[in-house]
């Protein structure tokens, strides 16, 4: 069986999927990055290898997410794409006439508007991460709940309270304040969901023409409270796709299929790469007052890549050496 591998290395999760030639998801892994992207990726691939039949052939690999470049160097990717394109491609593949994609991940949130399956406009949160997955994680932990329990709490509400959602620090103080007044936790959590949705629509969604069909994806789409809050705010039905939490990786896999079509070869290094040793080192360049932190990637002891310098003198030294 021929498959395509999609890898999405994000701040909170590292997602790996395998799709077949007709874009059916064969395997999907959702792993916590835990600040160790390389290790997580290696473990993920190892796990994936044990799950797939022997005759599976990886024909192409795509990477996306904030760690896309690092992941591409490690696995040998055929295509490296930003997460907006990857998410849009996956959304348009799953629901072909989709118009709006709401995506909330670990640390960023975005909105993508499509016309006839092609992105026509998008926005990403710039200076504020209020309302993203990390904040919800933190609040769940504060209330001593797992994120799954926390998600379902909002559904029990009768009377959501109003929470200030502009800033996550103030949202937290406001939640504590409402809690001390005696409101039930489910009302507070439901209020928080509404506040986050308001914040999202006012910041990321500002000036965007949100129309049905609307897809809601990314890790936070697992939270039914947020979904309901979106439906109330927009007055439209919200679709949460089956693979909502690995859509970026699916998009990367589809893009990989596009990238290798017609050339029948892949840069994929094979599953043996999990045995390789990947080390990153960094140093501060003293060449000018910018004092850039330059990062070096060693694969089995050989220097393979360098990045992080503003003037590119370190980056170029490697690229020009071939």
């Amino acid at each position: 069986m021929n498959v395509f591998l999609g890898i999405d290395v994000g701040s909170v999760s590292t997602n790996i999927v395998l799709i077949d030639e007709t874009h059916n998801v064969k395997q999907a892994l959702y792993l916590r990055t835990l600040g160790r992207p390389i290790e997580t990726l290696q473990n993920g691939l190892l796990k994936l290898y044990t799950l797939i039949p022997r005759e599976t052939k990886v024909k192409g690999v795509g990477t996306t997410g904030s760690g896309r470049k690092l992941a591409a160097l490690i696995v040998g990717a055929d295509v490296v794409k930003n997460e907006i394109t990857a998410h849009a491609v996956a959304a348009a593949d799953q629901i072909p006439d989709v118009h709006s994609v709401l995506e909330i991940g670990g640390q960023d949130s975005k909105i993508i508007i499509l016309e006839n399956g092609i992105v026509s406009d998008f926005a990403m949160n710039t200076v504020c991460a209020a309302g993203t997955g990390s904040f919800l994680d933190q609040q769940a932990a504060r209330l001593g709940l797992t994120i799954e329990e926390f998600s379902k709490l909002a559904l029990k509400t009768k009377n959501p309270v109003r929470i200030a959602g502009r800033c996550s620090v103030f949202a937290e103080s406001d939640m504590i304040h409402k809690q001390q007044l005696g409101h039930s936790i489910s009302d507070i959590v439901a209020g928080l969901c509404q506040a986050l949705v308001r914040n999202y629509l006012n910041n990321v969604g500002k000036g965007k023409d949100i129309k049905a069909p609307i897809i809601f994806q990314g890790g936070v789409a697992a939270n039914p409270g947020i979904k309901i809050a979106f439906e109330e705010a927009l007055g439209e039905k919200i679709i949460v796709p089956q693979w909502f939490n690995v859509m970026g990786a699916i998009g990367a896999a589809i893009l990989a299929k596009e990238a290798v079509s017609g050339k029948n070869e892949t840069n994929f290094k094979g599953f043996d790469l999990v045995k390789s040793d990947f080390t990153t080192l960094s140093f501060e360049c003293q060449g000018c007052p910018n004092i850039c932190e330059v990062i070096e990637l060693y694969i089995d002891g050989n220097l393979k890549a360098r990045w992080g310098d503003k003037c590119n003198k370190w980056t170029d030294a490697i690229e020009n050496a071939g």
Partner: peptide, 16 residues
């Protein structure tokens, strides 16, 4: 963050 947005924007235009 800037490069991600620029890449996505240019992708959008190329695909269109």
């Amino acid at each position: 963050g800037l490069v991600t947005r620029l890449e996505a924007f240019i992708d959008l235009i190329r695909r269109q």
